[in-house]
């Protein structure tokens, strides 16, 4: 028995990254080569080589577990709780109250955190709505989606360490989390129940799915190629209710210039409204 770690030669890395780009729109940076090599070395060993693994993955559907492993090894979803205070203030103080008024008191407010990585953003949205007194009491549904099955698996576990909580004050930590041992914290169950996670890349989303009041997609579009970015923006535009809001990250602003949505200046942030 020996364990020979296969080498991910650059041309094969390119083939794998092209495959990810074609299927999901994600542009895999060169710096991910080493990461991809180590994360997929077991699979490559089982397949015979990285090239043979590529030839197998090429035939796999995008939502298969095997292809999901490739996506996991290709994307980098680094995020943390209470990131972007301005955007959160705009969301909780201006956008959601307006949507509640627009929908009527009894209607549900639908929120989609698109490209939510390991779930910090959708949970933060739930937390901030709880702090504003909107939750519990109103019907709010938060949906988190990401292309990476591993990220969604972790999001569902809702257990985080100090790095994810680096911008979370002690008070918030005590209010929204419970200690999970060894320096880790788990989101309280009443907040966990508010968020539904799905593993789905943008290009597999239905254009005619549930309409949303708010779509938040921060710092994701910059990782997509031009075509996928355009399609994602089209999708967001179609999936918003009339009057619904799209919130993007500052780095996505240029991409958003192509949307048919109207740019609106709020007190705390800018957003796009349908």
């Amino acid at each position: 028995m020996t364990n020979r770690t296969p080498e991910l030669a650059e041309p094969v890395f390119r083939l794998l990254s092209d495959l990810v780009r074609k299927r999901t729109g994600f542009v895999v940076s060169d710096s991910h080569r080493s990461r991809m090599e180590t994360r997929l070395s077991g699979e490559a060993l089982a397949a015979g080589s990285f090239y043979q693994l590529y030839t197998q993955l090429r035939e796999e559907p995008t939502d298969s577990p095997a292809f999901g492993r490739l996506i996991d090894a290709s994307v980098n979803g680094e995020t943390y709780f209470f990131r972007d205070p301005d955007g959160l203030a705009a969301f909780s103080e201006e956008i959601v109250p307006e949507r509640i008024l627009a929908n009527g008191q009894e209607s549900e407010v639908a929120i989609w955190s698109a490209g939510c990585a390991t779930g910090e953003e959708p949970y933060t949205l739930a937390m901030i709505l709880a702090e504003r007194g909107i939750l519990p009491g109103r019907k709010v549904r938060i949906r988190g989606t990401d292309a990476s099955p591993d990220a969604i698996r972790r999001a569902r576990l809702a257990t985080y360490g100090s790095h994810a909580l680096r911008s979370t004050s002690e008070i918030r930590r005590r209010t929204h989390f419970e200690e999970a041992g060894t320096g880790r914290w788990i989101v309280k169950s009443e907040l966990r129940q508010l968020v539904v996670f799905e593993c789905l890349p943008f290009n597999l989303e239905s254009r005619s799915g549930t309409l949303m009041d708010v779509i938040i997609c921060r710092n994701v579009l910059i990782y997509l190629d031009e075509e996928a970015r355009f399609q994602a923006l089209e999708l967001f535009s179609e999936r918003l209710k009339p009057g619904g809001y799209l919130l993007l990250g500052p780095s996505d602003a240029l991409a958003a210039s192509a949307t048919p949505l109207k740019l609106v200046r709020l007190s705390h942030d800018v957003a796009y409204r349908k």
Partner: peptide
């Protein structure tokens, strides 16, 4: 953990000639 099981199993299948026999057996 789906992330770690295969690398762990492959590590258990890896041996080298100087490895103590007892360890080889335990891994196996």
């Amino acid at each position: 953990d789906p992330e770690t099981v295969l690398p762990a199993a492959l590590a258990l299948s890896a041996v080298h000639p100087q490895m103590p026999l007892d360890r080889v057996k335990r891994q196996h």
